[in-house]
């Protein structure tokens, strides 16, 4: 079992809906985005194109983050999900520096989205979910996945640009897409073996 995601760059419209969906599902504080969609102009007029590039934790099979993690807080689960045990994280942030994909943030404190105002009822309800002073990143919505649901960013994406499944199962949609469309991994030259594949780029 190795969970993975395929991102179809032809389908992605760069709406950043996934970015906010993930934020609200996980209650992350300001500045902490577990996923985001980079938008870049390429080419010269009039042969210009946008490159939409959804980024999240790549759930590397050979993760830099866990290689450098001095406490073992970051580890790879049996299902391929790279997680952070917040109770074991000392907040050294080496994983943040080491992750080649910029997938990690450091949650210094849980602040409100409305500076100078009292925390909102929603924020109060979520703040308890966060251990401040620890690293944070996408966990492939491990809770949901354990309950048989798809990650939030997958479900919310109107364009169906994100497809989730088991890369070890050759019959799964993700495996087939990777095979058919020659899925690419970001920075594959680093040998980190991401479980996130990009197709139709």
């Amino acid at each position: 079992m190795r969970y993975g995601m395929v991102i179809d760059l032809q389908r992605c419209v760069g709406c950043n809906s996934c970015t906010i969906a993930c934020k609200q599902a996980n209650g992350t504080p300001p500045g902490v985005l577990r996923t985001r969609v980079l938008i870049k102009e390429t080419g010269t007029y009039p042969n210009t194109r946008y490159q939409y590039l959804p980024i999240l934790c790549m759930h590397c099979q050979v993760p830099e983050c866990s290689r450098v993690c001095p406490t073992g807080a970051t580890k790879v689960l049996e299902n391929g999900i790279v997680t952070i045990d917040k109770d074991a994280c000392i907040g050294c942030q080496f994983c943040v520096m080491a992750c080649p994909y910029g997938a990690r943030s450091f949650v210094e404190e849980y602040t409100s989205y409305f500076p100078g105002q009292e925390m909102t009822a929603y924020e109060k309800s979520q703040s308890g979910r966060f251990q401040t002073g620890t690293a944070d990143k996408c966990d492939f919505c491990a809770d949901r996945v354990a309950a048989g649901e798809l990650p939030v960013c997958v479900v919310t994406c109107g364009a169906h640009a994100r497809i989730f499944g088991d890369l070890d199962d050759p019959e799964s949609e993700v495996s087939k897409l990777v095979a058919q469309h020659h899925g690419k991994q970001l920075l594959s030259e680093l040998g980190s073996k991401p479980s996130v594949f990009y197709i139709n780029g």
């Binding site: 290689r67 450098v68 993690c69 001095p70 406490t71 073992g72 807080a73 074991a88 994280c89 000392i90 907040g91 050294c92 942030q93 080496f94 450091f106 210094e108 401040t132 002073g133 620890t134």
Partner: peptide
């Protein structure tokens, strides 16, 4: 001071092979 959770610093002993562990 760099650590947000120095109270857990001894956990580093369990992974002395890491960069930080080696430094330590």
């Amino acid at each position: 001071f760099h650590l947000a959770h120095p109270e857990r610093a001894l956990l580093v002993l369990s992974r002395l092979g890491t960069n930080v562990g080696r430094e330590f």
